[in-house]
């Protein structure tokens, strides 16, 4: 569950201010965040991920108040509890698909790469239909395949929350549907909450809830 209350965030250099009085998202919900550019959708994802910390108010994810954690604790929490999916896939060109899926275990603190994790990665790849692409590097994969790899990477740590920032923005309409189906199925299996920023209004009916950020946000 995500609970945001009395959130007041401003970038140090000023100019932009995000003020969210109250936002609650239930566990396992599939939530889309929409709104025009510059309204702070990505900033919200960063705050929920603990990448940025608000000066006032609190962001609680799965009962953990992120503001109360140190930087190291927030990193560890993020590594274990949150999965990311990016619009540009953000795969490492020098690693094959298998190693991209396992990437969090190579760089995040507290995650141990063992046989069970490798087996889980293989199972995820099979479920996403890329089991025969695991030895290929991103450059040798289609965009749809690259996003499948990114989904596997986001899910391999069994996170409770998946943050997707324009996850289908670079895909053709058919692939968008397939990838979204795949993401919803896998997240449902894991019992994970999905918080997805999107500009694609055609996809909104597929979400449990749509938050129009322009309305939610109160400009200072």
């Amino acid at each position: 569950m995500i609970d945001i209350a009395d959130l007041d965030f401003a970038y140090p250099r000023g100019g932009f201010r995000l003020d969210v009085p109250r936002l609650t998202i239930e566990r396992g919900a599939r939530v889309a965040v929409v709104g025009s550019s510059g309204t702070g959708k990505t900033t919200l994802l960063n705050l929920v991920a603990g990448l940025q910390v608000a000066a006032r108010g609190h962001v609680t994810v799965d009962g953990q108040n992120l503001s109360a954690l140190s930087d190291t604790q927030r990193r560890a929490f993020r590594a274990r509890r949150i999965g990311f999916i990016f619009q540009n896939f953000a795969l490492m060109d020098y690693l094959n698909a298998r190693e991209n899926v396992l990437y969090p275990y190579r760089i995040a603190p507290g995650l141990v790469l063992d046989d069970a994790v490798r087996a889980r990665a293989e199972a995820l790849a099979t479920a996403c239909g890329i089991e025969d692409r695991l030895d290929r590097h991103p450059g040798a994969l289609s965009q749809g395949e690259q996003q499948r790899v990114a989904i596997c990477r986001a899910l391999v740590t069994r996170p409770g929350l998946i943050l997707a920032d324009e996850a289908t923005g670079n895909l053709d309409p058919h692939t968008k549907t397939l990838i979204l189906d795949l993401l919803f199925e896998r997240a449902a299996e894991a019992g994970a909450t999905i918080l997805a920023v999107t500009h694609d209004h055609a996809l909104l009916p597929r979400f449990d809830r749509v938050i129009d950020f322009s309305e939610l946000r109160r400009a200072a």
Binding site: A49, R78, N88
Partner: peptide
Amino acid sequence: APELDTARRIGAGRGM
């Protein structure tokens, strides 16, 4: 820089 940003988002610290 993009790769390092991804690593940071996923959980990598400055030490890593």
